[in-house]
Design a protein around this nucleic acid. Sequence first.
DNA 1: ATTCCTAAATTGGCTTAGCCACTTGTCAAA
DNA 2: TTTGACAAGTGGCTAAGCCAATTTAGGAAT
Lengths: 251, 251
Amino acid sequence: MAKSASFHEQLIEKLRKLLRSRQFVPGAKFLTEREIAERFDTSRPTANKALSSLVSTGLLEFRHGAGTFVRGSVLDYDLQHLVSFTEKAKAAGKKPGTQVIALQKLSAAEAPAAAQALKAASSEPLFYLERIRLADAQPVIYERRHVTARFCAGMNKAYAKGSLYDFWTTKCGLTISGADESIRAVNASPAQASALGIKPNTACLLVIATGFLEGGVPLWYEETLYRSDAYEFRNQLGGVSGPKPAQGRMR
Amino acid sequence: MAKSASFHEQLIEKLRKLLRSRQFVPGAKFLTEREIAERFDTSRPTANKALSSLVSTGLLEFRHGAGTFVRGSVLDYDLQHLVSFTEKAKAAGKKPGTQVIALQKLSAAEAPAAAQALKAASSEPLFYLERIRLADAQPVIYERRHVTARFCAGMNKAYAKGSLYDFWTTKCGLTISGADESIRAVNASPAQASALGIKPNTACLLVIATGFLEGGVPLWYEETLYRSDAYEFRNQLGGVSGPKPAQGRMR
DNA sequence: ATTCCTAAATTGGCTTAGCCACTTGTCAAA
DNA sequence: TTTGACAAGTGGCTAAGCCAATTTAGGAAT
């Protein structure tokens, strides 16, 4: 089994590649099992088995009588669920809040780390957003974020006060594919400590992250500070419920 | 599709439950596709499709001509890979090292946090292990760990200097199913700072974790401090390669 | 009595062909 | 123009069969 993959395993890989190479947008109709059986010279049950595998990993969706479709919003919902501070505060029985400290448009040359992460030319316009997220009026998160402006030209303070995820997906029509995070510990500077309502030099969790659109195009770069007395990341190795990323939550 | 699960999806669930309810040990033979087809009154391709799903999630393994088996060591390998500092140091081109600071046997009453996490009666014997992990002779990790002694009675300083994972799995015959980690940031105390070779009060990553054996029995409780200038946790949200836990690595 | 070899049985891998339930689209009638 | 019916297309699943790989059992030889 490990030596040479069975035909159906190879077919799964081929379909996965096809799904990516053709840039099927969420909601688009994918190949039918009869089309796959013909095109890859295999039987329908084998085609269905390969499709079923992609359905169970969430990439596709069967609609009985209609066909097989590329999944849209479910993956997006999972992502929003993973990152939403509002949800996490509420889950902890606290009232979430947001203070917008700054929202500016600047050029990438003014923010070299973000420019690099976003692969932006030096004249490329970026939005710089600085916010504090609160739970029961207590600051928990100090967020600084650069966003590629051309993807969300209509950004303003009102949108900055709400869910960025909502704004990007519904107002800008973006499809966000994920984010790569690095989790570190830092001593809060006096300014950072002031923003978070803690003593200077207190240890905080720092998440440096880049977020991506479908197709791997970077959308945002963030350096976000979390009060560690109020927030932690939970990570499960092994276990019966299958692998998943570490998740932040209120302590 | 979402309203009522198809038969094959229900069958997957039934088989998953069967797999757990009967306590199939890794390596044991599971039901054949013909047995499943007969027992659940379905066709062989449908039985095979359900089994294939459990194979692709890693719970089972097909052996052509021999049958379907419960997976053993592959999950274990993944776990070791996830936690092995030795591997991570080497991957960063550094020479790993370990200093055993303390190895004692004590009763659970002497370590209330560990006793609680390990669900140990106050008279239950625990091992207390304190180590420093080094990369190129520089301290990176300060590890304090309590282990339920009855699972690894032969623990000694020689074993404590090497891979605990190896010792537990090969010498004690344990099957480790995973660990639950909480990732926080703390200011290093003078003793902790001294152990890690950093200035007191420097921000460090603190991982508080409980590790489990197959069946959910707790094996160890740890409070492990990481120098954040040398080590970070990487976490991927979304992305094309599927979900996985956050992973520590050298910076 | 033990060991080795061969044949039969068992198992996964996959096929063909078919039926049924569901959905969508088109055409005809009101 | 709208509604209903029918046809075509699609997933869900079946039965039966063949083939390759592995295991087991029985018989023969030492």
